[in-house]
Design a binder for these strands. Structure first.
Lengths: 235, 235
DNA sequence: CGGGCGAAGATTGTATAAAGTTTCGCCTGT
DNA sequence: ACAGGCGAAACTTTATACAATCTTCGCCCG
């Protein structure tokens, strides 16, 4: 009669070693410590985490499936370098999915969740105040993921995790100015709408928030090899 | 000028050995030759494909990420058994994403694509006529994937591939009657709308098509262990 | 005769070693 | 001096061997 814990396949924070590697590398990419194009050698990572290449390889394959790492046959794994076309696709998908997610989040609202959101906003403000760009980037993505968790839809959550990870890379590559990745004010507005259970307002604010993020990107179209090279040299 | 400078990480039909295993197992699951709950032993599969466990393991991990296989620690891999709650999430996601996909497909329409769709419809009708249930199930899913490919959005395509695979399992588990998985007529109607570039009609038809599929499912809620057992014995 | 304990078997998780491929430096020939 | 090719080093890929874990079946005890 056990209630069936049912850890499912992709337990969010499984404490096994491959998850530690995956989350470590993910954090490094999302906080922009690892730049797009960086080679991720198996020995190198294995040394850092004290694991054999078998585990590292598993973690890298998962990251490849999430789209933030490219694995080239017989050449190795590299931090992904999304093209402008990729960027447009990612943001189009987010504009489609995230309004629906906040909609559901409005129905799942509870004091515990509101508290959690409030604490997150405080964390974001704090990071922004002390000018910690890395923490800001990470927290900014976590806000969106938090709302997806709140919605209770595991499929949307899985999709969005992928989209957020890719977005972080895109923002790094194509942001015009060094403005904060997401406006904390927008996030506060979204939380306010959720608190009032105003689904329409929440949808609208989420949509305009995403539009604003994308508007700050400079998505030049051709992305020819020459321009790519120029990017690398400039970086 | 090279049309394909980068094969990307998840090439759809890479001809390496792990892809062969993955596609073989996927096909078996999607054609309902492997039933939910079936254990997928590593040695067993490795023997079949003449590969070592390393490659089998890689393939199984990919399938786990796609959601059609569950990997339980120290126990092995099993064909996934989606719950009714999973089923509702999958179809909600499809209702959100697929109308947008056909919308884009309408803009990408070309004689070559129309021909491809037409040939696919013929294949579906043929399979249905000769009562080949396995081929029908497979082709039915491939129709939706074809439209996603047509839309040109690789992210939507990736998401939908996952959703289609899970849908196939869901339909197997929860279908009321032995009706064909998808009405071929509906597919023909959708193609007609695409040909006319009537985006609104295409969206509407796709939506009602999905509604109809879900309506034929019997998503009992509790899914207690006793009922599960009854399912197995009945199958 | 039923239930619990325990050892044997089987299966997965992990590490290490062998094999194949790519890349880059170096050398030779023109 | 430069272009082209040869070769070694480094890396990924694949296979195999070892360790840890779970399952199963038999046996003993109540």
């Amino acid at each position: 009669m056990a209630a069936k814990p049912r850890p499912k396949s992709d337990a969010p924070d499984a404490s096994d070693r491959v998850s530690r590697i995956r989350e470590g590398v993910t954090a490094a990419i999302l906080e922009h410590r690892l730049l797009p194009g960086t080679k991720l050698g198996e020995d190198e990572i294995g040394e850092i985490y004290g694991a054999s290449r078998t585990l590292v390889r598993t973690a890298l394959q998962q990251l490849a499936h999430e789209g933030i790492v490219n694995i080239e046959k017989n050449r190795g794994a590299f931090v992904a370098r999304p093209t402008p076309a990729d960027a447009r696709e990612v943001f189009e998908a987010r504009r489609l999915i995230e309004p629906t997610i906040v909609d559901h989040a409005c129905e799942a609202v509870s004091p515990a969740w509101l508290d959690r959101l409030q604490r997150h906003l405080a964390e974001e403000r704090e990071a922004e105040l002390r000018g910690d760009a890395r923490a800001s980037v990470r927290l900014s993505g976590e806000f969106h993921r938090l709302i997806a968790e709140m919605s209770g839809h595991s499929i949307y959550l899985g999709f969005l995790k992928e989209l957020i990870a890719r977005s972080s890379l895109i923002i790094l590559l194509y942001r015009r100015h060094d403005t904060p990745a997401c406006g904390t004010d927008h996030h506060a507005g979204i939380v306010a709408a959720i608190r009032k259970r105003d689904r329409e307002a929440a949808r609208a604010q989420m949509l305009s928030h995403l539009d604003e993020i994308e508007a700050e990107l400079f998505l030049k179209d051709p992305a020819t090899d020459e321009l790519r090279l120029a990017d690398v040299l400039g970086a």
